[in-house]
């Protein structure tokens, strides 16, 4: 009985870690620009796909990860320079629509370059499961959770302690005021896309051995990540992670104790309830205090 519950818990954590990594990217760009970047899922897809292609070409894994992250960061930069920046001072809704277009475009390119099939990346440290009280957890799940935790710490330090991070927060809050105090807001926006693309790539690479990867893997990861980010409170790093884990765990527990047929419905019922009673999500209240 214990092992069964624990297995549900591990299953939820594994799925939740993927949602959390995706949610972090949404939060980051939202923090810097107020834009919800629906191409975030594609950054994750590209990270995984690049790493798979490179390792298949014989590049050692650590180097492949590094190159994949660089390539995807460049894609993020180009997305900002070629699609978001030319839109000028268009309102946030227009920018969001641009990101949806970019997402479809990136998927199309990936399908042509990568082909329509699915592939898997080899797990970083083997696939012998770790047994804990009769339940099993893959080492790769630990990698995902560890990476997620590390990213939250780095982001907290970046936004809380560095000038650049603070400049990004200021830009998000009031672009005109930020410009008046000498912040180059254009660079800030570009930077937020680069960082978020890099983050997506890392998420894509760590999760690729488990989710497998194909050109259309970003849709699901992106949508669930968005739900997780909203659940935890948009703009909050901690919220993104907690939102992701809650989402994964409720799915798994619903599948285990109610029925797997209702698995997908439960998190959405949950998010309706949370947004109804806490419209800013679990950790989003801070946004209103930023005066």
């Amino acid at each position: 009985m214990l092992s069964q519950t624990l297995q549900y818990f591990f299953s939820g954590l594994t799925n939740g870690a993927i949602y959390a990594l995706s949610a972090l990217g949404f939060s980051l760009i939202y923090n810097a620009s107020g834009v919800i970047n629906f191409a975030q899922g594609e950054f994750i897809m590209l990270g995984g796909v690049c790493a798979v292609m490179l390792t298949a070409a014989g590049v050692p894994l650590p180097l492949a990860i590094l190159i994949a992250v660089l390539v995807v960061s460049l894609v993020g930069l180009m997305l900002e320079k070629l699609a978001i920046e030319p839109a000028g001072d268009a309102d946030v809704v227009s920018l969001i629509i641009i990101t949806i277009g970019a997402s479809i475009f990136l998927q199309g390119v990936a399908q042509v370059v990568f082909g329509p099939g699915q592939r898997a990346l080899a797990p970083f440290t083997g696939d012998a499961p770790i047994m804990i009280f009769g339940a099993s957890l893959l080492p790769q799940s630990m990698w995902m959770m560890g990476t997620g935790a590390l990213i939250v710490l780095i982001l907290a330090w970046f936004f809380g302690r560095t000038r650049l991070g603070k400049a990004m927060l200021a830009t998000a809050h009031n672009r005109l005021a930020a410009r008046l105090v000498g912040i180059n807001t254009r660079h800030v926006l570009a930077l937020s896309f680069v960082i978020s693309a890099a983050l997506g790539a890392v998420a894509g690479v760590v999760s690729a051995p488990i989710t497998l990867t194909s050109y259309d893997v970003g849709i699901m990861v992106g949508l669930k990540g968005f739900v997780a980010a909203t659940l935890g409170g948009l703009g909050s790093g901690l919220g993104a992670v907690v939102g992701g884990l809650i989402l994964g765990l409720t799915e798994a527990l619903a599948a285990g104790y109610i029925s797997s047929a209702y698995k997908d419905a439960v998190p959405f019922v949950l998010i309706i309830l949370i947004l109804f009673f806490m419209p800013r999500g679990l950790f989003g209240a801070r946004a209103s205090e930023r005066v």
Binding site: G12, T14, T211, I219, A252, A255
Partner: peptide, 11 residues
């Protein structure tokens, strides 16, 4: 697109 179905399999 589920990344983990150990719950269903355990059941």
């Amino acid at each position: 697109k589920d990344a983990d179905v150990t719950t269903q399999l355990t059941k």
